[in-house]
Nucleic acid binder design. Structure first.
Lengths: 162, 162
DNA sequence: AAGATACATTACTTTTTTGTCAAGATTCCA
DNA sequence: TGGAATCTTGACAAAAAAGTAATGTATCTT
């Protein structure tokens, strides 16, 4: 279970855009330099993000990329989903598909782990927006640890008073 | 963010072993057949699991593999960690290492996402043991959804009466 | 002790994922 | 209008992961 290169760099590019003052944009060359990746690679990533409607591009001089929506309206769950869509398709037509080919019949116990894990991750990521990632390490850290903390607490003690 | 092939098949092999009556074992050939993978591949997976101390092997006739501990004492968090250890090393010397090479200085907001995600996943997996995966889809599903449910509920409503 | 069975280990092949290149299309500016 | 800047796109190359093969070593049975 790991974050792919494409996910990581793609997310970083979006954070760069989220940092910009209203109305400004970044060219591929600028983006590449800021993230320490090649221009070609940045081009590919931004192309994916553009196709998915997360960023808007403009060609020619004065061209570049900017976010398609305010950073506070872009959740990480959406970002990650877009960035590994291609990959996920293959492993087995997304996690549901795993099962149709799976040698385990029905009641095997593994299916819910795979599917459930995916849900848990999406769930956690849906609590964070791009805006929260902008120059704000402490805050994000707190958000995530709040999730983890509660999780641990309540799960380990099945019945709690609500 | 996806479950690698090695993680999935490795886990499946362990579940096969967990299903066995006390004292019995499975050979590579049996394991391979039951999971629909090649014997060579099963050999590699079991070798990793053996090195990590999760299973015990015995050679020669009457040989095979069995769990090194009762299935109720093997948590999925440990299993997954063992199965992608090699892979994780490379991406950037485990998630902490990412940062030493990272072009982002200190307060970038991305680090806690990567690290935090990893923690959340480990956390969820540490709540499940191999024993719970044995022929018991409904139960695992409930466990995981309980985690997710609580998570969503509490995080979305920042202040709750406890 | 010999031979058969089964794991151990390393090197190699194939497939998948990443990353690069190059030719084309659009936009801006003079 | 022409040229420079910049994104677009598909083909290609390199690196990583997954899977296979082959040779070696331990254990059991007779």
């Amino acid at each position: 279970m790991k974050v792919s290169s494409q996910e990581e760099y793609g997310l970083r590019c979006l954070v760069q855009l989220a940092r910009l003052p209203e109305g400004e944009s970044l060219t591929l060359a600028q983006m590449a330099e800021r993230e320490g990746i090649s221009t070609a690679n940045a081009g590919k990533l931004l192309w994916i993000l553009n196709k998915a409607g997360l960023v808007q591009s403009h060609r020619g001089m004065k061209g570049g990329y900017q976010l398609a929506r305010p950073s506070s309206e872009i959740r990480l769950s959406e970002v990650i989903k877009v960035l590994d869509e291609d990959t996920v398709q293959e492993h087995c037509k997304s996690y549901t598909g795993v099962m149709e080919v799976c040698v385990h019949t029905g009641d095997c116990g593994i299916r819910p782990v795979i599917v459930g894990l995916h849900e848990i991750v999406q769930n956690a990521l849906s609590e964070i927006t791009l805006a929260e990632l902008v120059g704000n390490e402490a805050k994000v850290d707190a958000t995530l640890h709040q999730i983890e903390g509660l999780q641990t607490r309540f799960v380990r003690t099945p019945k709690v008073n609500l």
